[in-house]
Simulated scan of single mutants.
Amino acid sequence: MTTSILRIDASIKPEGSISKQLTGDIVARLTAAHPDATVTTRDLGANPLPVTDGAWLVAVNTPVDARTPAQAEIAALSDALIAELKAADTVVIGLPVYNFAPPAQLKIWIDQMSRAGETFNYSEAGPVGLVKDTRVIVAYSSNGTRMGSDIDFASGYLRHMLGFFGITDVQFVASDHYAIDADSSMKAANEGVAALVA
């Protein structure tokens, strides 16, 4: 049952983004089946997150009651992003491929949430993800980097990081050869959206 949807867009295009079109189509399909579901949207291209740096590292690793006001502000954003992820039972992520890899904007979103004790823990058996019972649908878009090919460094990275957080229910919808054959690329993506179990 889908009750809370988190939509993450990462395209830097103000208009004409295929990944945004697909995330919109996916969310529309989900909300048509579950009209009472809430949708939270973050457009990382239009509203980029601050990069994780030394100040961020110190802030999130300082005990809450010992943080300066500046550190509290830095940590609060990271906390909010983690809370959004954990609150969603379905996450829809736009993954436009730039230079064979995920956009920097999406990488920063992941970096902001990569915190021991929050999204993962280390155990004697290795890392253990702390985000459970979450479904992710990824809208993969590329002009010619075929998903799963030797030059695709985007989809595998995202799947790995989601798994690192504990999310293993990950599905992909792909328009991955748009510059080569736009019609067949979008046809494949639209068929993928239509085949999703809402």
Rank of each mutant, 00 (worst) to 15 (best):
S175I: 02
G148T: 07
A194V: 03
I110V: 15
G24C: 07
T23D: 06
R42M: 09
S184H: 07
A182M: 13
A10Y: 07
P50Q: 08
Y157G: 12
F164S: 12
F172R: 06
L44I: 08
R67F: 04
L158N: 04
E73P: 05
F165Q: 11
Y178F: 13
A80L: 08
A70K: 08
D9V: 06
K107G: 05
D79Q: 10
R29S: 11
I180C: 04
A76S: 14
D152I: 05
A59T: 01
T90C: 00
T31G: 00
D25E: 13
R29I: 03
I108E: 06
G163T: 14
G126I: 02
R115C: 03
P69G: 02
Y122G: 07
S17F: 12
V92E: 01
T52D: 02
A32L: 07
R7T: 10
Y140F: 14
L77H: 10
G166E: 09
A195N: 09
L30M: 06
T62V: 07
H177W: 13
D9E: 08
V138C: 06
P48G: 09
T119E: 05
D65W: 03
I5G: 05
K132N: 13
I137F: 08
G94A: 10
L81E: 13
G166D: 02
Q171E: 13
V197S: 14
D183Y: 05
D36M: 09
L95Q: 07
V58L: 05
D9T: 14
T119C: 03
F164L: 12
G16E: 14
Q171P: 00
L30C: 06
P50W: 01
D133V: 04
T41Y: 13
I82M: 13
I8Y: 04
A101F: 10
D150C: 00
M113H: 04
L162T: 15
Y122Q: 04
L196I: 09
N99Y: 07
R159E: 15
P127N: 11
G156R: 09
G94Y: 02
V91M: 01
K187Y: 00
L81K: 01
P69Y: 01
I137W: 04
Q105E: 12
G166H: 09
A46K: 13
V197D: 15
L57I: 08
G94T: 09
G54N: 00
E73F: 01
I12F: 11
V64N: 10
R115L: 07
G94C: 06
G24S: 13
S19R: 10
A139G: 11
I180N: 08
Y140A: 11
A139T: 09
M161Q: 15
Q171G: 04
K13G: 12
F165K: 12
Y178N: 14
S123M: 03
V170W: 01
P103M: 08
N47I: 00
S114N: 11
R135W: 05
D43I: 12
G163F: 10
S141R: 12
I74V: 15
Q71H: 08
V128D: 00
K107A: 03
S149R: 03
R67Q: 07
S185R: 09
G129Y: 02
G144N: 04
G16R: 14
E191D: 12
S184A: 14
T52G: 01
L95M: 08
I8D: 02
A116S: 13
V27C: 02
R42E: 12
